[in-house]
């Protein structure tokens, strides 16, 4: 029983870590968006305001997948262990 609980807890932590690999995608995407915005501002400094606000909204949308990964990682750390251990204790007695 103890070994089973230990395996569940360890797998939850590992899963949370693996889920956060998804952070790579938004980072690359947002970096690209910010770089392009900088190019645009360098070409047309007068359009700085609108470029910046549009860039923030675009970054927020690109961030969505990363936030999903974060939510899943937080669920795996704070919520899943209790649930899984409870299920196991009910099943195995």
């Amino acid at each position: 029983m103890e070994i089973a609980i230990a395996i569940v807890l360890g797998c939850c932590a590992l899963g949370a870590g693996i889920a956060m690999i998804a952070g790579i995608g938004p980072a690359i995407g947002e970096g690209y968006a910010v770089g392009q915005a900088l190019t645009a501002i360098a070409r047309q400094p007068e359009s700085k305001g609108s470029v910046t606000s549009t860039m923030f909204v675009g970054c927020a949308v690109a961030e969505t997948t990363g936030i999903y990964a974060l939510v899943i990682a937080i669920l795996l750390i704070f919520v899943a262990p209790n649930t899984f251990v409870g299920i196991m204790q009910r099943a195995l007695g």
Binding site: A60, E63, T64, I67, Y68, L70, V71, I74
Partner: peptide, 16 residues
């Protein structure tokens, strides 16, 4: 759902 998670996730990550 994505609007909720975006706002909530950003603030929660800061808190954590």
């Amino acid at each position: 759902i994505s609007m909720t998670f975006r706002h909530f996730g950003n603030i929660l990550s800061g808190v954590v």
